[in-house]
Design a binder for these strands. Structure first.
Lengths: 260, 260
DNA sequence: CGTAAAATTGACTGACTTCAAATTCGGTGG
DNA sequence: CCACCGAATTTGAAGTCAGTCAATTTTACG
């Protein structure tokens, strides 16, 4: 949790090095990205749908989520982001933001000019690849959510998202998969699972009654992990947490010999 | 439709140049990618969930779709791809395929070794950026689909997808937005909208009865575009078709002066 | 302590699913 | 050209999961 305040971009470096290894020069360039550190209150907007974003946003601490609305105001929550995620590499590289990003809890973020991101990707293609990979993993999670909300029943949807948050938070050392802080309201949980808040409430109660979880207003304890995994049809491959790191840009070491 | 057979990768070049302009060297490098051209029958698999993919797949002609299954066999269709799409830039760069890709119609594809893609991105960062952008647009469409299946009613979901295919096919000169070939079965349409095939059938009938579309087994004519747009809550921003092309890699022209 | 947001509960409704059977279509072989 | 077959579509009837509406209780927090 206690990041070196002198290196606010360290969480981004750590996250991207899940996908590619960086040499000293690449690490320095990344940490030297121009940025503005901002403290956000819960529910503060990072980007609004329709904006022409000028910055990307790194989440240093706290949680954030992406959302999209129908014309009638119904909401879907598309993703929940955690420390180290460059929230909205998805959004801000394209011209117009097609969805909004909002802080879920109070959060510390770094705004990075989008040209600086593009420039970094052009000067250090290895970092560009890592950022690309990172957005691909986001997409993979989005696909699993799509499956979740279209083809699983209510109690499975809830069970699945409870499993996912546990594994993700544990991978960041922000909790245990069987016990973690859970700051979403039931209404937000409903928008993340395509259900109605009332039904989410009843489903949580049912998961408690059947002994799978204990739920208090802002925390979750899983009391029967293996049954919860079955109930949620949870298979964690889609999180790509075991992606083997590619050693430092081997392609750059032998680019001349192009045997074909 | 009639692409120069000497340049089978031309559709990919055309598509990527929607996002970035390439100079002659970049264009040549892209067209020279190693590849194997394959003709696929309808329903043939390109990648299966769980595979360790070694190739990316460019769709030269025909349609393809991505899908994912629950443990009990229920299916969701995540995306439909058209000519020029590098189906599964999404999938094949990561270690394990988290979903399957299948031909929707008979199709011609080019398999490109994934190292060749990574190598191209490292040698020509401008092309790397274009491919990244391309996957971001895919993600944007995926987000709209998520909104569609979670927060719109059945008839809206169908109306929305009918609008989307019209606009996308028209942008590729493969049809008119108000009249196009539509090779999906009602069962596939159900899996793309999170509905049951029986309900899809009834909904299509209702859209016909109310005069919005005419539907025959394998083609759609929109008889009232503006009402269909309203019914489907369709706003085409998310397709990012008006993304202004960035002129040839300006960042590369002045990388020295880094005024901050 | 007071207040607003969030959670909870009950009664009722309905959009969509399920099951099952009939019909149509497209291609194939005689 | 026509009969045939499996897949896709269509239709009907009945059931249910989740939504809706509305009121009450709990909680966080100043």
């Amino acid at each position: 949790m206690a990041e070196d305040p002198a290196e606010p971009l360290a969480p981004m470096l750590r996250k991207l090095q899940l996908w590619r290894r960086f040499d000293a020069q690449e690490q320095a360039a990344l940490l030297a990205l121009p940025r503005e550190i901002v403290d956000l209150k819960a529910a503060a907007y990072v980007v609004r749908e329709g904006d022409l974003p000028t910055h990307s946003c790194l989440l240093i601490s706290g949680l954030a989520f992406r959302q999209k609305l129908t014309r009638t105001g119904a909401r879907t929550i598309l993703a929940v982001h955690m420390s180290g995620d460059v929230v909205d590499l998805q959004n801000s590289l394209l011209e117009v933001a097609d969805h909004s990003v909002q802080a879920l809890t109070k959060a510390q973020v770094a705004f990075i000019p989008k040209e600086a991101i593009v420039d970094l990707a052009l000067r250090f293609p290895n970092i560009g690849l890592a950022m690309w990979y990172d957005t691909l993993v986001d997409s993979s999670i989005a696909r699993e959510w799509m499956l979740n909300v279209t083809r699983r029943e209510g109690h499975s949807r809830i069970a699945h998202i409870v499993c996912e948050f546990g594994v993700r938070l544990e991978s960041l050392s922000l909790g245990l998969r069987t016990s973690y802080e859970f700051p979403m309201t039931q209404e937000q949980l409903a928008d993340a699972t395509g259900l109605h808040p009332v039904h989410v409430n009843r489903t949580l109660k049912e998961l408690e009654r059947t002994g799978l979880i204990t739920y208090t207003r802002r925390s979750i304890t899983v009391t029967n992990w293996s049954e919860l995994v079955v109930a949620g049809d949870f298979r964690e491959t889609y999180l790509h947490l075991n992606q083997p790191k590619t050693s430092p840009a081997p392609e750059l070491q032998a680019p001349v010999a192009d045997a074909e």
